[in-house]
Write a protein that binds this DNA or RNA. Structure first.
Lengths: 352, 352
DNA sequence: CTGTTAGCGCCTTCAC
DNA sequence: GTGAAGGCGCTAACAG
């Protein structure tokens, strides 16, 4: 109850003096509120005033302080993108689509690379719920703090969320994805149409949503082509080159080899082809190999890989567009599915 | 000057009520100042008080508001990473190293993907100088707003900066890179040691810093092996698969073909190998091919690519570590060079 | 269309 | 070791 402490909370500002809204207001002979309005909604200010303000802004070099703005408006202009592996070429192309669209809409992109660490996931959940971003795009197949099985203690996230690529079951948020099941069926039927009857399947990680859907599609395809499902032809993988190599070894060691192999990722297909070649066999002469994703290197593999093309950039753009809609108070479809296509290259051919 | 407007500036807060520092203070029977201290410097608060505060924080679920904190402290806890192409697999692996280290140090990572757009570059420069990040890592080979030739009007950036991979000439900031010149010399001499005398060189974009260094190394290598430099053996490229394909066509159309080709990126090498194969020739029997970078797919190319390995993850970690030092008020070396290594695989062999 | 005013949530100086 | 209080810079609400 005394009126001292005049310099309390000085928080020394950077040596280089920066213009504040107050300086602009003085120079333009208006109030700070008018400057704020001129920036936020120029049409609510008279043309003449607007010009004066703009002039003053230009000559002072004024740039609004984002922290102050954020404190007041509860907006950050930032979006968090959570993904399992930043180094994976599959994701990086998607990210580019996300970034483009967010940029155009005026949002910045913060990356949360999970790297398989629950600690990091918890961190990003806290990050998001602390209000450091306006929204988030989830590429990791589950909600913050929630294991895939839906256990754990989910943090209550109070910002708009969008799921990309890996659908999140039971989550009431927009989901942007491809039709994994149909795409896998298409590939399976294509291989069957070449005359293959023994078509092996190299899977993704157990429990993965994508894996579940692709496996269903594989079985749909077999059924449609009247080929009996053979569990012995299903080989475990995890989408990496190494697991493709391992799957190749497994297959080549068998007496009754399949004539075609459907790998549920291009990386596995490339690893598998390499193994086949190193055993003195040739793709597709001795064995047809197909992939999934159509990453950059699918087209320049030897032989060039037959695969399912995913529109990765568009997936990213669609997710960002959906999130921006939500952030603007508009609505967006609960589910968006983008078309894939079968890309036939050199790695598949009729059996001998 | 009347005392009304009691609710002015309410700025309706999220429906879900969140604990503020005030709530914690009340619950712990202390002042807000004490709560703040307990968080910032626990040793300046009595053990008993600290325990009460921590308890109150736990039971309220209090999380400090980052905007308010940033407004007061002029710190954001964020780092901007500027790079030319997010979709490029070369960068994404580096990014992972950056992210890891920043995460451990408590910083978040904002991505600025340039995409060759000067508009975006200007935007990110403004972004950084508006105080939205505490520091930045530049992978794009030049300072904000400054063209490679040093023209243009550079925005004065008042935050710590670190250059990664592409050195920035005349910039007084820490630079983290490899020795491009020496690495290129090593590769050139290795090819010469196999017995090659006609060694072609597929370049990067003209004017690029990396290109300049690698070209120097190529010439150093030729000189050391007493091979005359032949400008006719230098083919223009831009590090992409497509330019490798084009370079291959160029070379194959010639009468006097080189017996070995040093491509200054793995992507170009892969594109070039494909062209060679599609002309019915084999690598390395008819032509040796070497790359640079050692991206993931170099090891699984057919034939597996001989190349220069860059420690990408460590490069990212080193850059982030340097920046964190700067942000903590510590110093860091002006220049850090990480070791590369020659990786000999299957794509190179003695000439026939 | 414009000005006044209050306060977003926190940190920090000053006083005790 | 702790409390009181001002203010970081901006925008929202209201009055005119």
């Amino acid at each position: 109850m005394d009126g001292h402490g005049r310099k309390a909370g000085s928080g020394r500002r950077p040596a280089q003096q920066v213009a504040r809204i107050h300086d602009v207001a003085k120079l333009a002979n208006v109030s700070t509120a008018t400057v704020s309005r001129a920036l936020a909604s120029p049409d609510r200010v008279s043309a003449e005033t607007l010009a004066r303000v703009l002039n003053a802004i230009a000559s002072t070099g004024y740039v609004p302080n984002p922290a102050a703005r954020s404190l007041r408006s509860h907006k950050t202009g930032m979006v968090l993108v959570v993904l399992p592996d930043l180094a994976n070429t599959f994701f990086s192309r998607i990210l580019r689509g996300v970034e483009e669209t967010l940029f155009e809409a005026g949002y910045g992109m913060i990356i949360g690379d999970l790297d398989g660490s629950p600690v990091k996931e918890a961190h990003f959940a806290a990050f998001a719920s602390a209000g450091r971003v306006d929204g988030a795009i989830l590429l990791n197949g589950h909600l913050f703090g929630q294991s895939r099985e839906g256990k754990g203690m989910p943090v209550a996230i109070n910002i708009p969320l969008v799921a990309l690529c890996e659908a999140i079951p039971n989550a009431d948020i927009p989901q942007i994805e491809i039709d994994n099941r149909l795409s896998a069926e298409t590939m399976t039927r294509y291989l069957a149409s070449l005359g293959h009857r023994r078509i092996a399947y190299v899977s993704g990680p157990a429990g993965n949503v994508l894996e579940r859907e692709r496996m269903r599609g594989y079985r749909d395809g077999l059924e449609a082509e009247q080929i009996a499902f053979d569990a012995g032809l299903v080989i475990g993988g995890d989408y990496t080159v190494e697991s493709g190599v391992a799957a190749g070894r497994d297959l080549l060691a068998r007496e009754a080899r399949p004539t075609a192999v459907f790998c549920t990722s291009d990386e596995m297909a490339i690893g598998l082809m390499r193994t086949v070649h190193s055993h003195g066999l040739r793709v597709p002469r001795d064995m047809s190999v197909a992939g999934f994703d159509d990453i950059e290197f699918a087209a320049v593999a030897e032989p060039a890989l037959t695969t399912i093309h995913q529109p990765r950039r568009q997936l990213g753009q669609a997710a960002a567009t959906a999130l921006v809609s939500l952030l603007s108070g508009r609505t967006t479809p609960r589910s968006i599915r983008l078309e894939t296509s079968l890309v036939i290259r050199e790695s598949t051919a009729p059996p001998l």
